[in-house]
Simulated scan of single mutants.
Amino acid sequence: MSTWPDTRILDLLGIEVPIIQAPMAVGTTPAMVIAANQAGALGSLPAAALSIEQLRESLSVIRAASNRPINVNFFCHQPPAPDDARDQRWKALLQPFYRELGADFEAPTPVSNRAPFNDEACQVVEAFRPEVVSFHFGLPEKALLDRVKATGAKVLSSATTVEEALWLEAHGCDAIIAMGIEAGGHRGMFLSDDLNTQIGLMALVPQIVDAVSVPVIAAGGIGDARGIVAAFALGASAVQVGTAYLFTPEANVSAAHHYALRHAQASETALTNLFTGRPARGIVNRVMRELGAMNPAAPAFPRAGGALMPLKAKDEGGFSNLWSGQALRLGRDIGTYELTRQLAEQALAKLT
C-alpha cells in the first residue's frame, strides 16, 4: 500500500495501516483480532471482562493464528469500597421492573465485575509479550507499568481532555488515544468526572496534537474513510475504530444488540451510567428512557450492573448495555478483513 502522510504510528507499532480495531468488551472476539491483524491493522483484545484463564486462552488462539503485532487492553480503575445501602437503594429502584418481568427480587444480587490491571494480569503480559498494551481510565501504578514496559510493549491510553493527554505523556505513554465524546462504550475520563466538559473529536484532536510530542490516535465517530481523512487533517497519526467492527460477522453481540445497531437512528445513542456505574455511550433502550440515562442512584463502577442482570435475562433489549458510538449509521455488514482493507484503501486514495 502506498505511503501514508504520517507514518509515526506505523513505525511505532509495526503495523501496515494506521487503523486500530478498538478493544470492545462487548463484541470483540479472537477471530476479529486475527482478521484485523491479517488486514494490516492493530487487532485489540479487551481483557477487563475476561478471567485470567480466558485471557490466556484468547491470547493463545490469537498467537497461534497470527505473528503480527497485537494490543491487549486493560482497565486500571480503583475498585469502589462496598456500599450495601447504595446497592439496596438501587435495587429497590428497579423493583417495579422485577415485578413486571417476573424476576426474583429476593434472590441474591449477581456480582457485576470488571477487573483492574493487577499482578496476575501483568504476569500474562510478561508471558505473552503483546507488542502493544493499552489502558482505559488512566494508567496503572508505576511498578506495574514499569514491568509492562520491560517486556518491550508500547503503551497507549485514552485521553478525553488535553489535561489527561498531558498527564499520560508525562507518565510514560508512547502514544495517546484522543477519545471524542462521540465514541461508544466507556468514557476513558480519569482526571475529572464532569461530563459537561467532555470534548468532541473535531476540537479535541488538534488541541492534543499541539500539546504533546507523542503520536495521537483519533477515536470517536469514525466509521468510514471520510472520518480517517478528517482525523489525519487534524493531526492524528492513526484512528481507532470501534462501532463499525460490531457489524462484522466476527463480532459477538446479542441478538438484541445486533438488531439495535441496524435499526437505531443516529440520534438514538446517549451516555449512561446505568449498566456499570461509569458513563458509557450506548443505544437508548427502555431502562435508559424510564430511569434517565444518567441516574445518581446507580452504584459506583462496576457494581451497578449486578441488579440489572436478572432483568436482562428476561428482556435483553430493554435492560442490557447496547454500546455504540454516534457513527452507527455508517456501519455495514462486511467482514473484519474486508472492512479494514476498504477503510485503508479508500482513505489513502483520498489522502494522496
Results as ranks from 00 to 15, higher is better:
Ile217Met: 09
Pro206Arg: 08
Gly184Ala: 08
Ile181His: 12
Leu195Lys: 01
Ile176Leu: 06
Gln207Cys: 09
Gly180Asn: 09
Ser213Val: 00
Asp174His: 15
Ile208Val: 15
Leu195His: 01
Leu191Gln: 05
Pro206Ala: 11
Leu168Glu: 02
Ile208Phe: 13
Asp174Met: 15
Ala170Cys: 02
Pro206Cys: 10
Ile181Cys: 01
Thr197Phe: 08
Leu204Glu: 06
Ile176Tyr: 08
Ile181Leu: 09
Met202Gln: 07
Leu195Val: 14
Met202Lys: 10
Ile181Gly: 01
His171Tyr: 10
Ile199Pro: 04
Ser213Asp: 06
Gly184His: 01
Glu169Asn: 02
Trp167His: 12
Ser192Asp: 11
Asp194His: 13
Ile199His: 12
Val212Glu: 10
Gln198Asn: 03
Leu204Gly: 01
Asp210Gln: 14
Gly184Phe: 05
Pro206His: 10
Gly185Lys: 12
Ile181Gln: 00
Pro215Asp: 02
Val209Trp: 01
Ile199Tyr: 13
Leu201Pro: 08
Leu191His: 04
Ala183Pro: 02
Leu195Ile: 15
Arg187His: 02
Leu191Pro: 01
Gly172Glu: 07
Ala203Arg: 13
Ala178Ile: 05
Glu182Arg: 04
Asp210Ala: 14
Gly185Gln: 10
Leu191Arg: 07
Ser192Val: 11
Val205Asn: 09
His171Arg: 15
Val209His: 00
Ala218Glu: 09
Ala183Trp: 07
Ala165Leu: 02
Ile217Thr: 04
Ile176Trp: 04
Ser213Thr: 12
Ala170Thr: 06
Val212Ile: 11
Val216Cys: 11
Ser213Gln: 10
Val209Asn: 01
Ala211Asn: 05
Gln198Trp: 03
Met179Thr: 05
Val209Tyr: 00
Leu204Lys: 12
Ala183Ile: 05
Val212Met: 12
Ile217Asn: 05
Asp194Phe: 07
Leu204Asn: 03
Gly172Pro: 11
Ala175Phe: 04
Gly188Asn: 08
Leu204Arg: 12
Ile199Trp: 12
Glu182His: 06
Ala203Ser: 15
Gln198Ala: 12
Ala170Phe: 02
His171Asn: 15
Phe190Asn: 07
Ile217Val: 15
Leu166Arg: 10
Leu168Val: 09
Gly188Ala: 14
Asp210Val: 00
Ala178Thr: 05
Ala203Thr: 11
Val214Trp: 05
Glu169Gln: 15
Ala183Arg: 05
Ile177Asp: 04
Met179His: 09
Asp194Leu: 12
